[in-house]
């Protein structure tokens, strides 16, 4: 029973990939078995009225409060018991609150298509609990021609991204679990619609090198009420491996060196009467950063698990 309930949570693992800078980043150690699938529909709303210009936390009435709403449909499929596949693409809408001094139009549209594979390397069950190690490889790339060089309204960084993530979890019989994850994000180039930009020097090209990044995650969580609800506290740290600072009172650009520390809460409830259905709610906030928004994000989602093929025996 509890196993089936857990499955849909696996979807949230890869949310980190679409999230890029501003959305949530839970990761998970749960696998679906072969022939099982899960649908997730997630809605989240983020907003910020402060951001870090380099390391200086500031306000800017040109953009006032920037709101960022996203709807994310995603599918997870158990190919093998040890191998899961994920695909999703968020729709995002951005705008400033009124009044603002810049009068800039916001942006909306589908952002990046994400595909990912998760493979379970170790799953060691003892009388005390379960230890598992997993690896995720993900790839995302823009699916529309949104303009990445339109910060802070741009839908995303506009570059292809490869993510390599390792996840380790220990779950006690009591329902308590601890999880850690580390990822390396390789980002390609994003294309601006201008021939020149400044990045600590002149660049005569529309191509902007989007810095790679490393992330680490730490999660403590537990299952309650006969495994019908899962609660998590999570931390995400993210750091670019290169990049420039936002210049004084100037717009951000995809070449920036982004760092952030983010903390969050997540709850996932599984209905006992409707087989396969769950709801998830989460909130997270960036508490420290560099060249990034001090954004708070709240999201809700529905998860639905089913067998896409009948078991054959």
């Amino acid at each position: 029973m509890s196993k089936i309930k857990c499955l849909c949570t696996a979807l949230l693992v890869v949310l980190s990939c679409y999230a890029k800078l501003w959305a949530q980043t839970p990761s998970d150690a749960i696998m679906m078995e072969a022939r099982q699938a899960c649908l997730l529909l997630d809605y989240n709303q983020g907003s910020f009225d402060q951001y870090w210009e380099g390391t200086l936390l500031r306000e800017n009435q040109t953009i006032a409060t920037v709101k960022r709403n996203a709807v994310m449909p995603m599918v997870a499929v158990g190919i093998l018991d040890k191998l899961n596949f994920y695909v999703g693409a968020p729709f995002i809408k951005t705008e400033s609150s009124e009044p603002n001094g810049g009068k800039f139009a916001g942006a909306s549209g589908f952002q990046d298509l994400l595909v990912a594979l998760k493979y379970r390397i170790i799953n060691k069950v003892t009388d005390k609990g379960t230890f598992s190690v997993l690896a995720t490889v993900g790839f995302s790339t823009p699916v529309t021609n949104y303009l990445p060089d339109y910060m802070p309204y741009s839908l995303g960084l506009g570059a292809p991204e490869l993510s390599y993530r390792a996840i380790a979890q220990y779950k006690w019989k009591s329902g308590l679990y601890l999880r850690g994850a580390g990822a390396y994000l390789w980002r390609g180039y994003s294309e601006a619609e201008r021939e020149y930009y400044y990045n600590n020097g002149s660049y005569y090209t529309p191509w902007m090198d989007v810095p790679n990044a490393i992330t680490i995650e730490g999660i403590v969580g537990f299952w309650l009420w006969n495994n019908s609800i899962q609660l998590e506290l999570n931390y995400l740290g993210s750091k670019s491996t290169s990049g420039d600072d936002i210049r004084p009172y100037n717009a951000a650009q995809p070449t920036n060196d982004i760092e952030m520390d983010r903390v969050g809460l997540l709850a996932h409830y599984y209905f006992s009467k409707i087989k396969g259905l769950g709801v998830v709610a989460y909130h997270n906030r960036v508490i420290n950063g560099r060249n990034t928004a001090k954004i708070n994000t709240t999201g809700v989602g529905v998860t639905y698990f089913f067998n896409y093929l009948k078991k054959q025996n």
Binding site: F139, L162, G188, S202, Y203, W207, D209
Partner: peptide
């Protein structure tokens, strides 16, 4: 992934 990971020379 390897194929995609190639680096560009950006003119300065």
């Amino acid at each position: 992934l390897f194929f995609i990971s190639c680096e560009k020379e950006l003119p300065t």
